[in-house]
Design a protein around this nucleic acid. Structure first.
Lengths: 147, 147
DNA sequence: GTTAGTGCAAACTCTTTGCAGCACT
DNA sequence: AGTGCTGCAAAGAGTTTGCACTAAC
């Protein structure tokens, strides 16, 4: 297993991007995260870690890395844009509408469906977004106790 | 089959909402549309039809009707919010990334998946959003001709 | 007559952009 | 040295809100 330091360096080198502190910071935060993050999330964590990066730089870094295919970008039902490493198999989100807890769903079951759709519509499908929402067990319990 | 006029009236009456010209206009536009629409779409069509409604009224109407469960709201990967009648079985979108043509997908294949997820996570799942993107046959052809 | 709905303009959130200065290669 | 990246502040899109006025019940 290679260290985060190395991984970030490699990603930047491969994509002919300058190796700057801001990009290191952003990449490390995304690597460490178990869930997908918003620009605001990353901005806040960078600040917490004592490695502040401007919000506009975060946005620019995220969009550069998405274009290069390093990150996967998806707009959630809360209207915010979330990013995750696309080197992981991509993952969908299950969001609690009460507490906003997010679970990432490990396997994406949509490949077969995509193939079928392509046949039907003639489209060349190159992506999808899927998100579930509901109530997590903790919130369900809380609601029950109140009643 | 009941007329649009009647349907809009019924929807408003059932939900204890005042029967105003703006709401009639918005509801008729949504009923007539084959695809889901944004607030801006509805605003523009209302204007075209010579029945102008303010954008803020459109937004307020859409959010009222979504809360009442009359409309289904979903935020697309383009960052805009689309609305459709929820009396129809809900439909997902297949969007061409080149020309933005939208096809609605007739059947939603996610029920069984939801059940499985509920078992695994303990969540009570009450909704999902799903969207595919790709290139429509026309755009694929155009791209080919250029090359 | 009362309450709910509307229009207008201003505010708000998330994201993008122009420009001058700084850091990486 | 030269280009690409950053910070700052201002602008942009989409959406929401406060307030006075109007229309539905």
């Amino acid at each position: 297993m290679i260290s985060g330091e190395t991984m970030a360096n490699d990603i930047l080198k491969i994509n002919a991007l300058k190796n700057t502190r801001s990009r290191q910071t952003v990449l490390h935060i995304i690597e460490d995260a178990a869930v997908s993050l918003t620009a605001e999330d990353i901005y806040a964590k960078a600040f917490q870690n004592g490695e502040p990066v401007t919000l506009s730089t975060v946005y620019r870094t995220l969009s550069t890395l998405s274009e290069k295919g390093v990150l996967l970008k998806s707009i959630s039902q809360d209207g915010k844009t979330y990013y995750q490493l696309s080197s992981h198999q991509h993952k969908h989100r299950l969001v609690c509408t009460a507490c906003n807890e997010i679970i990432l769903i490990e396997n994406c079951p949509l490949e077969s469906l995509e193939a079928e759709l392509e046949k039907k519509t003639g489209y060349t499908i190159n992506g999808h977004s899927l998100e579930f929402c509901g109530i997590c067990p903790k919130c369900a319990k809380k609601a029950k106790n109140k009643a």
